[in-house]
């Protein structure tokens, strides 16, 4: 099983590279995969591969930052979702379970209301997401409930509060220009992603993904009951705290640069577990690759399907929601 799962992970890794190369060519200015490879070699080595300037500019300045962002955020959101699912021992949980993405959305909305720069919009979204997590942890530690249940309950309350606060910000916003900007941002889009935005989140998201992958075996154990995990000798509080922090950093960073992109963190872990393994040593890397590929492909549709770009958050929901229903039906059949 482990060898078979390992091979599947390698195949998914190769598939992700192929998706990225093809995605770089998709758009109104079509470039073949061979052309993309030549552009990339030309950029990396500095040797001319005979590609015209327009193709090089489109690939490196317009599409590359966006596709790198979709690869990174797709991987991050999917892994964040799977981490939360395992921590809360519930396959129906998504990265916004604790309300940190709602809080990040509030941070961004408030910044847009105040007319702050796009950098500050991202920074404030991130700060709001992390601050919400700190608030949730502080309150949950004072409840007398079991830790995971306490976190979920407090998360629901905090999420609801930030959701109301975001609605209030929208109410205050100028309906002619600020309100549409907030609404469009919250729908989720990668359209404004450039190298600067990518650079802001690449390190925290990349590092969080690396830590979660390194902790994958121990995160397996968090999905057991608390007594079982402790009997095995696992410091559940420490591992849970690290995992939740990493998953929240990813979620907050994602909202900071791309708004709310739903369903990736819910659906991709399911596909990963169904096709590869329940063991996080294998399902975590496969989730990373599947999440990257999924978001990159959806983003291709988002920017090429119609003349006006469709926010990616809408498309992930259109694809994710029916898929989730299918999963629910499967589970109902399984239980009966």
């Amino acid at each position: 099983m482990s060898q078979k799962a390992g091979i599947k992970v390698i195949i998914l890794g190769i598939a992700t590279i192929l998706v990225a190369v093809i995605a770089l060519g998709i758009g109104r200015y079509w470039i073949s995969p061979i052309g993309i490879i030549r552009v990339l070699i030309q950029q990396i080595t500095g040797h001319s591969m005979g590609m015209d300037r327009n193709a090089v500019a489109v690939v490196t300045h317009i599409r590359l930052p966006r596709i790198l962002a979709s690869l990174l955020l797709g991987a991050g959101l999917a892994l964040s979702g799977q981490t939360f699912q395992m921590i809360f021992r519930n396959p129906l949980v998504s990265p916004d379970v604790l309300g940190t993405s709602t809080a990040a959305g509030f941070g961004a909305s408030l910044s847009l209301l105040l007319g702050l720069s796009s950098v500050l919009v991202s920074v404030n979204a991130f700060i709001a997401g992390i601050a919400a997590l700190a608030l949730i942890y502080t309150i949950a530690s004072r409840t007398r409930r079991e830790q995971t249940l306490g976190l979920i309950l407090v998360g629901m309350v905090v999420s609801s509060l930030f959701s109301a606060a975001t609605s209030f910000v929208k109410l205050m916003a100028d309906p002619n220009n600020v309100l549409p900007a907030i609404t469009y941002f919250l729908m989720g889009t990668l359209s404004g992603t450039d190298m600067r935005a990518l650079g802001m989140v690449a390190v925290p998201v990349g590092l969080s993904i690396a830590v979660l992958l390194a902790l994958s075996w121990k995160i397996n154990l968090l999905s057991l009951s608390e007594d079982e995990a402790r009997s095995i000798g696992v410091n559940t509080k420490l591992i849970r705290a690290i995992a939740i922090t990493c998953a929240t950093v990813i979620t907050a960073c994602s909202v900071a640069v791309a708004g709310n992109i739903g369903w990736v963190g819910l659906v991709i872990p399911h596909i990963s577990r169904m096709t590869v393994s329940n063991d996080a040593r294998y399902s975590f890397p496969s989730t990373v690759f599947l999440g990257s590929s999924f978001l990159t492909l959806v983003d291709c549709v988002s920017r090429s399907a119609t003349t006006i770009e469709i926010p990616i958050g809408i498309l992930t929901s259109f694809i994710g929601a029916p898929f989730f229903l299918l999963l629910l039906f499967r589970e109902v059949r399984y239980d009966s």
Binding site: M1, R89, P91, W217, K218, N220, S223, I232, V234, N278
Partner: peptide
């Protein structure tokens, strides 16, 4: 107990070495 994510028998036993 019924886990939300049923592991293989081998993985379940392997968990015992985690400490």
């Amino acid at each position: 107990t019924r886990s939300a994510f049923p592991y293989s028998v081998r993985t379940s036993i392997l968990m015992g070495c985690s400490s």
